[in-house]
Amino acid sequence: MSVTDLALARERRGALAAGGVAIAAALSVATLSIPGMGQSVHVGIDKGLHGVQTVAAMLAERSPGTRSVGELALLKHKRQLALHQRALPKIRGPYTPPTAYQALATPPVAVPLVPPPQAPLFATAAGGPPEVIPPVGGVPGGSFGPPAFSGIPSPGGGGGGAFTPPIITTVTPQVPVTPAAPVPEPASWTMMLLGFGVMGAALKRRSDVGYRPARD
């Protein structure tokens, strides 16, 4: 085969290739130009793809994945959630104050007292208004509610002066009103500070004795 033959053969091959490309292009144009042809091809592919996809695969495609074993303990906000979860089951009842304060909060109890054996102070035969002895040992501020029996004189009995109403007084329970101080007393403070001072002074004296400079 001479050089010219080779060149001719190359030319022929090139022409063939060019022809092939042209035919392919023409075919594709023809395919696209046929209305519905491209669609049907795509539909075929589409149906085929979805036809082989199982329902499990469809679900797996949209799933965020499986929850791993330690996943619940990984997040920072998880700690807050865990706190919240721990706190949730604790449903607390109504608040009950401590006993000392509870005693303070209870209203004074009205105790009917037996009238004294002596005659009433202002019992007159003329039938004056029966007197009521004012509450003995009542609350100075009166902040614990009204006394159980008001001292308003009744508007004059009908002459039966012998009757005296039972004397009712309010009795407040004797409660130690001095709760424990949250801070120490000034005396305690003074004592403690004095103790520290004494300790410091003692240490200073001792160190003065012990650590004398060497060149002295």
């Binding site: 199982t54 329902v55 499990a56 469809m58 679900l59 495609e61 949209r62 799933s63 965020p64 994945g65």
Partner: peptide, 18 residues
């Protein structure tokens, strides 16, 4: 395969992971 236990006609196409 046990994925479904009764006839299902169609599924929503959710091609992205939710």
């Amino acid at each position: 395969s046990g994925t479904l236990d009764r006839p299902v006609k169609s599924m929503l196409a959710v091609p992205v992971p939710l």
